[in-house]
């Protein structure tokens, strides 16, 4: 069913990772990605891997759900591994058959690339799993607020993102309902060639668009009724404030990055 699609699902929890300021988590993510791309040896990869593993352990996110989120990316991972394995030149030839040569460098490179993508995705998962969409947009808005000086509509963008995220489940439910209603009138979405199937979507898309516009209109009216007038002078119910744990997290991030840089520079 359509309802089973997960989209950066949030797992409510009480761990330290959950309670960190969303800005801290966003900045942390950036630092972590830089560290990840700096790493180039077994030891440095080991360090970034251990770091993320510890963070996941602290967050108490079940490993199963992270693995499940990984499944749709299997193809990309396999593709990356194969490309790097077969098409990296090097001196130490491990195996050779027909036009394909596998070198030691290629093997290492394939492993590193896959590991890099895996870690990259896992750390973004950790962010979306432990941060509710609302606080995530809050954090983004706050981090990007300096851009207001050059007239970037930061608040408006954050609000749009927030509303979009909010309505994803609603739209999925709506689509489900309309599909059922058209099926009850004999609509057939499963058979026929591609043109048939695309045409069969019209009875779903038209009502879906119309109800989206209606919803947007109603939401705008409701917001105006409550005196919404954009970001200027607007106060927040949940003020973002850095706490001790946030400073500790920053310290950890800086230590990680310098550690990896030092390791790489010493060729380890």
């Amino acid at each position: 069913m359509l309802k089973d699609i997960t989209l950066g699902q949030y797992f409510p929890g009480e761990s330290v990772v959950h309670r960190l300021d969303p800005r801290t988590k966003l900045l942390f993510l950036i630092v972590y990605i830089v560290a990840l791309f700096t790493a180039s040896s077994w030891i440095s990869y080991g360090v970034v891997f251990l770091f993320l593993a510890t963070a996941i352990a602290i967050s108490r996110i079940p490993l199963k759900s992270i693995v499940r989120g990984m499944k749709p990316l299997m193809m990309i991972l396999i593709f990356t591994a194969i490309l790097n394995l077969f098409f990296t030149g090097g001196d130490t030839v491990l195996a050779k058959f027909w036009v394909i040569t596998i070198t030691k460098e290629g093997l290492f490179r394939a492993i590193f690339m896959v590991l890099r993508i895996l870690l990259l995705i896992t750390c973004t998962f950790l962010l979306t799993y432990t941060t509710s969409p609302i606080s995530l947009t809050d954090g983004l808005e706050s981090l990007l607020s300096p851009l207001k000086k050059i007239r970037v509509p930061v608040h408006e963008l954050a609000m749009m993102m927030c509303i979009a995220l909010r309505f994803v489940p609603t739209l999925i439910e709506e689509t489900d309902k309309i599909m059922c209603a058209q099926k009850a009138r004999g609509a057939d979405f499963e058979s026929g060639n591609i043109f048939h199937r695309v045409k069969a979507l019209v009875p779903i898309l038209v009502p879906l668009f119309i109800s989206s516009f209606r919803r947007a209109d109603e939401l705008a009216t409701a917001m105006e009724c409550r005196c919404y007038h954009g970001g200027e002078g607007r106060t927040k119910m949940k003020l973002l404030r850095y706490k001790r744990r946030d400073y500790l997290a920053f310290l950890a991030a800086i230590l990680l990055l310098t550690g990896v840089i030092v390791l790489v520079n010493f060729g380890l």
Partner: peptide, 16 residues
């Protein structure tokens, strides 16, 4: 589907 007709709640939202 044809012999048992089903009219959903708020069926006007399915017009297209």
């Amino acid at each position: 589907r044809f012999r048992v007709g089903l009219v959903f709640q708020y069926p006007e939202y399915q017009l297209f």
